[in-house]
Design a protein around this nucleic acid. Structure first.
Lengths: 349, 349
DNA sequence: TTGAAAGCGCTAACAC
DNA sequence: GTGTTAGCGCTTTCAA
């Protein structure tokens, strides 16, 4: 092992001072160039860049963060599942963060983790993030966290006090409203609902939207069956529904559950959509290819992530400025073959 | 805006020195306590912890990273899609990283990005990660990156030189072999293959495994159809296969493609498994609930992530030590209803 | 437009 | 067991 010139780190990595020496300028000037500050002559800039290229110099972000107090990284708290919704949101966030010139730290929570979201937020804070986004928040009661950086809740009301809390959403409530109304418009007397776990704000929003649509049309809301997003729980719900007389339309809060749900109906000898119409939620890629192709609503994950991050960036970079309200993303319902008018209507007996 | 006591950062945040003063010890002792070093008396430790609690002190990781040259964070390069495979791998990696006491940085690549994996690795290096994992690597030709931290390739041969390159995998090749053999054992004369995009090492491994199984049984390998993992591409492949006379068994390299594939077959009036048997790959959650329930192989994402990270941690923390070879994860094939003996066998004519 | 000096909050090395 | 000293590689402040 070779003796170290400097006591830590990779002794091969050039510092700003090395670049400065080679370019014949001060270290501060190198810093100016790499931060795109003004007041650097074109000629000096080029000399610095040349030297840096020769040496393979790259800014040391730990040092930068220590000196400036800002890390230019965003922390994301996500749910530790490979589900289509959470994963899509994460992809959208990653893209938006990168486009904003920031980098990403991630910590995921597991259902039932005692530390939960609060613990995840703390660990992010320890890492010195400049802002936090809580993707797919669940209700964990009154988490007593006090956070000094802006926090974006993607699809939920603020769950704890922060310097600035922001909210942006995928419009779950409106989407659920539209899904329910689609079924009502087809002529169904009412619409049953297979909900997501009510700890999730996303699940509550969908339930709210469903109930609102029913109310708006003066229909009675049947009892709700609660699943856990899994296809297995959808299947279980399907077996329950299959035993109920007179059900003609069901809004299932997630595509995965909807696929399990339809499977159970099929096994029970019920046909979709002839006997029962079902609408899913998410428009996951396979939805168009199952049998029958699933009518569902499309969540604007990317738009929500982009929109939300724009707010977060504003809050980070202009702490004083008033935030514009989040614009609601467009509602998109994808009608395929799992929905139809009720039998009584299509062939009046 | 209040005047700052210190020139940067949050002036409210206590430093180690503040804790030291309150506890009546030196700052170095505080550092010792927070790093769980030995040679601190129980009494002093308690006093320090008390003081820290009172002040709400937390270690500043930027400073720690700068001073020590280590950040205790792992960087992951992932593919920017919400697909079940990549997402599952990411979840597994996150868990393994957290269990090892490290934190996670993520950057995703988009198909067709000129910077690609090399660019992602660089950005991670800029952030000062201690190790890198390339999840779902694709072949981008000779990327000229020189990396000074250990790199773990999850399911691929090393694609560029690094201090130490490690490989761990989900055993795609063996899984594909098993899937193909399952069909052969059922009595099919040969097995067609719908492959993933061959830029992906994961897709190549599956193709290799398929071909190997065919060779081992002295069967001819029919021409391969290449998809892009999407259900839509599986659907397109299905339409092609449906026009070919005499196909009785198909191994599709991904469940999502398999679902699209089966849909195309169904629309063409072919029945699964009566006319054609199909095996998928991944065992995504909905696979058990589509019609017919899909026979598929289960990828051990979690085991692979855990196994791979163990190696990575070893490489980071004991630079000298020889790495044990990665153990192959168990092969698991899930037989459901999309496979059966060929018709000629089941009812001999 | 450029530079010098100070210091961000921690760990490394060594003394006691 | 504990403390002292000297950086880590940047940004900030202020002077030129």
């Amino acid at each position: 092992m070779s003796s170290l010139e400097r006591h830590a780190g990779n002794s091969a990595a050039p510092r700003g001072a090395d670049v400065a020496r080679l370019a014949g300028v001060s270290q501060k000037t190198v810093s100016r160039v790499f931060n795109d500050e003004q007041y650097v002559s074109e000629e000096v800039r080029r000399r610095v860049l040349d030297a840096a290229g020769k040496l393979g110099y790259r800014l040391n972000n730990a040092a930068r963060a220590l000196a400036s107090g800002r890390s230019r990284t965003i922390g994301v708290v996500t749910i530790g599942t490979a589900g289509y919704g959470p994963a899509s949101l994460l992809v959208g966030i990653e893209r938006a963060v990168r486009d904003a010139g920031y980098t990403l730290r991630i910590v995921s929570t597991v259902e039932g983790d005692p530390a939960g979201i609060a613990g995840a937020v703390h660990s992010l804070l320890d890492q010195g993030v400049d802002g936090i986004v809580i993707s797919e928040p669940v209700d964990e009661g009154q988490a007593r966290v006090r956070v000094d950086v802006p926090v974006l809740f993607l699809g939920a009301p603020p769950a704890f006090p922060a310097t600035r809390t922001l909210t942006a959403g995928v419009g779950s409530r409106q989407l659920a409203y539209a899904a329910t109304e689609h079924l009502l418009d087809l002529g169904h007397a009412t619409v049953h609902h297979v909900a997501g776990p009510q700890r999730w704000y996303a699940a509550r929003d969908r339930l709210d939207g469903w109930r609102a649509a029913l109310n708006a049309h003066s229909r009675l809301a049947p009892p709700v069956i609660e699943g856990d997003w899994s296809a297995a729980s959808g299947y279980a719900a399907g077996r329950q529904i299959a035993r109920i007389e007179g059900v003609t339309a069901v809004f299932v809060a997630g595509d995965e559950m909807a696929i399990g749900f339809i499977r159970a109906l099929t096994e029970a000898g019920l046909r979709v959509p002839d006997d029962i119409s079902v609408v899913g939620f998410d428009d996951m890629p396979v939805a168009a290819y199952v049998s029958p192709p699933l009518t569902t609503v499309r969540q604007p994950f990317d738009a929500a992530a982009r929109e939300g991050l724009q707010l977060l960036m504003l809050a980070i970079e202009k702490p004083g400025v008033d935030l514009p309200p989040a614009v609601d993303p467009p509602i998109e319902i994808v009608v395929r073959e799992s929905t139809a008018p009720p039998r009584a209507l299509s062939r009046p007996s």
